[in-house]
Nucleic acid binder design. Sequence first.
DNA 1: TTGAAAGCGCTAACAT
DNA 2: ATGTTAGCGCTTTCAA
Lengths: 342, 342
Amino acid sequence: MKVTMKDVARAAGVSLSTVSKVVNGHYSISEETATHVKRIMEELHYYPNARAQNFATGKTKEVILLAGMEANTAFHNPHMFEIIAGLEEALRRKDYRLVLRGTDSTEACGVAEEIISRQSADAIAVHVGIMSHPLSALLTKTQFPHIVLGMPNFSSQVCWIDNNNTYSGTMAAAFLLSKGYRRIAFLGGLYYDLGSAHRLEGVKQGLKNGGSHLPDQYIWLGESTRADGYRMTCNLLEQRPHPDAIVCANNYIALGCVDALKDRRIRIPEDMGVVTFDDYPFSQIIEPPLTVVDIHVRSMGAQAAKHLLDIIRHPNMQIQTYVTTSNVIERSSTRSRELGKG
Amino acid sequence: MKVTMKDVARAAGVSLSTVSKVVNGHYSISEETATHVKRIMEELHYYPNARAQNFATGKTKEVILLAGMEANTAFHNPHMFEIIAGLEEALRRKDYRLVLRGTDSTEACGVAEEIISRQSADAIAVHVGIMSHPLSALLTKTQFPHIVLGMPNFSSQVCWIDNNNTYSGTMAAAFLLSKGYRRIAFLGGLYYDLGSAHRLEGVKQGLKNGGSHLPDQYIWLGESTRADGYRMTCNLLEQRPHPDAIVCANNYIALGCVDALKDRRIRIPEDMGVVTFDDYPFSQIIEPPLTVVDIHVRSMGAQAAKHLLDIIRHPNMQIQTYVTTSNVIERSSTRSRELGKG
DNA sequence: TTGAAAGCGCTAACAT
DNA sequence: ATGTTAGCGCTTTCAA
């Protein structure tokens, strides 16, 4: 029924191992026999059986991704899937497959343990959202090839990759300064929101680089929700003088921020510039369309794949790195200001 | 190094096949030996090698998903990933894995061919977005276990599953009627947008069921964009009498529709009810929050998994089915109207 | 440059 | 209820 290597060997009048070598492009095979065997393979519609190859080589050519995928994850966190898409694409180019495995932070460690023990994948990718201490310990102890997508919020020896949010913050600040904004404020998430914290750090840095700075009264932190974005903006607007631009750590906060500004009839961008991060999910449809520091999460996934393949070759190698994949997309929530006006 | 079945057999003082039977819960094994062997397995930290199992059984226990995953797909089409998440979850419960494979409609057929030939998955799931005639032909010819997520827009013998958009449309109409709306209009996508067409069909049906109907002047079709939503609404508002409620075939159209109503100072829901489909991505943040017919795409993924597992057992079985997974979420864009007012 | 043969670790038919 | 044994289809060392 199914045509195997044996059939090819017989039909080609060569040995099994010769066929195998042809399949794998082994150097020792003469061009003559190689082309001959290949022709036979075509004629017979031969394709090597993937399962048998995996078994014989002791590899799966698969990377398994552990991630939280509760209901509506794709809506609340499209970033994650965009990273996944980038990961998959880059792996595919190297003939690796990506297996999806939903789980949560409590069971993830057990899941990983089984994968490692059963050798049902060549490497594990873990979305930072389900990272835990036990999992971290397991990965470092076993030295099983892995990479965490996003920096863990606790110190650990695992391999991870993350966007350089600090740098993105710096970009935001530099951009606003270049437009002539002078009194720049920041609305961000709470202490456990590392992304926001880094962006804040970056904004400070960027302002400093430009000879400016970020006063405490212009920094407000809260939940990353529309409601808190609104509240923080209200608090911010009680400060005197008003800022002339606001950097929102994310889209949700920006949404509330814009609401509050509109309610108070503060015009964007005439009276107030607004910048946020990520071109999605809402920044496009907010009125006015927001200027954003776009983060190419997909390319982060691609970078992760690259590193992972390195790690598969050298399982003891440790990688902890930030990647910079952002750029400013200017829309209508900012504009050049006459210098000296503020 | 790695502990195999052989080691377990030796340590337990039984044969290889006994261990295998214990692993697979074969009925013929006495409880006594079963528990004994299991203890040994624990002690030795034995886990069956997945690759060897796959090879020996001739199965991969994997389903591979072919889908278009260009840049930003996760943002433009979170539905797809929500379906994927549902598919994965349901497969996982049955000890199957989901492999992601990005591709496009032109190369998908070749990809599928290789998967089938190499037997590198037990079944193929195809997102309808990359469906093509050759792929359809391949799947039906080979009878390889498969399911298409979404109904192909051409007639074919492949297995597919899709949401019952007609029924969702009926729900929208029935809901509006129950609220006392009487002059209901529909804004939808163009002819090739089957989802929209079905929803329109459903609305007509629902109105008919309620003793009402949908006049042609209340039906406007265009691109599924905010801009066209705006335009269609303008056209609609030239009709006399005005409708008292509008059903928008999707979120993009709804966005433009609401813009237009606001520009004309037509109050929602006082002067005009608005309903759309899908709780995402924008319906939550539109002002006012829209009443929607929510489509549980994730559960469609789960259903797809169920059918797929059936199909794996019976490869010649054909399934073409609509699943109903919707319900109305009432928000602020509709409200009860005094009967007889219109 | 090619071939022979020994696995890879498990399953499953068959024998006991 | 348990054990024997023959594969599953390929890779890879080693010998020719």
